[in-house]
């Protein structure tokens, strides 16, 4: 058990514990803080799993942008505290039942699945020829071909089946050391613009639609504002609901227009 293994255990445990904190805490802002902890521990996990680019994206996009949105909306709407689901018997039982069913589905789906590790072996040179990214590796550099440094099975290089195509891309394993030598960002980026270029473009379109939709939804159009004002004026002035203090300014609101109107007319 290497140091990296221990760190992976710690990061995974932290992720699960903070996820429980998200669900169990009664104040939304504590949920948000636990979610930040969850994102950060997952970023550490990704780093340890040789996904450096993804770790950076996780911190920037999730812990940065998405969490700012959450904290912003919590501060804006200031939803009150809510009983933790631990205290709500009905929610606890119902949620636990469905989680149990989910776990059973997972077990059913993965039962009997063996993840391939021992495949036909080939030389390092064959693999580097097969995968374009590996051709970028400087010829002089010694490259380890060990696909599973964490497992410690050296020199066994599982690769494509004997009938792999001319492109040679079928069944090529991910070699962390080699990819790190090329650069994690370079390999991921190269993939985004070659293999996954269509999904990439569709995703950009989706982001555009989401941005336009968000702006449109929150926009106060003149017509809608007039309708809302009409609805508000039709509604009789609400007595302040119990437990919700609206402040002194609201209580005086029926008089306020007259008070401001008089100096103007005078």
């Amino acid at each position: 058990m290497t140091q990296a293994d221990i760190l992976i255990y710690i990061a995974g445990a932290l992720a699960v514990v903070s996820a429980a904190g998200v669900v169990m805490s009664s104040q939304p802002i504590y949920s948000a803080l636990s979610l930040v902890g969850n994102m950060v521990s997952l970023a550490v996990l990704f780093l340890l799993l040789n996904a450096q680019f993804l770790a950076a994206v996780q911190v920037i996009v999730y812990a940065g942008a998405v969490m700012v949105l959450f904290v912003f909306i919590i501060a804006l709407l200031s939803p009150g505290r809510e009983d933790s689901p631990l205290r709500d018997r009905r929610a606890l039982i119902g949620g636990a039942a469905i989680v149990y069913v989910t776990v059973q589905i997972f077990v059913l789906a993965t039962n009997g699945t063996t993840y391939k590790k021992g495949l036909p072996t080939a030389t390092c040179a064959t693999i580097r020829e097969a995968v374009p990214a590996y051709r970028l590796i400087q010829a002089g550099q010694p490259a380890s071909c060990n696909p599973f440094p964490l497992h410690g099975n050296e020199n066994a290089v599982p690769i494509a089946q004997a009938n792999n195509s001319a492109a040679g891309l079928n069944g090529v394993l991910f070699f962390p050391d080699d990819v790190n030598r090329v650069g994690n960002v370079q390999v991921t980026g190269g993939q985004l613009f070659t293999t996954f270029v269509l999904p990439f473009e569709i995703t950009s379109l989706l982001l555009l639609v989401a941005a336009v939709g968000a702006v449109y939804l929150t926009r106060r159009s003149p017509g809608r504002e007039r309708a809302e004002q009409a609805r508000a004026s039709r509604r009789p002035p609400l007595p302040a609901p119990a437990g919700e203090s609206l402040g002194p300014g609201v209580a005086a609101s029926p008089k306020a227009p007259a008070a401001t109107g008089e100096p103007e007319s005078a």
Binding site: Y115, L119, A133, F174, V179, V187, Q191, T195, F196
Partner: peptide, 26 residues
Amino acid sequence: ARFGYSNLRPLSGMAFALFVITIAAA
């Protein structure tokens, strides 16, 4: 992406995860 056996290219799992993050943000 790290331990599995990829039929596409190395790191395709990471590209998928990137898409998931993007769609979550949207």
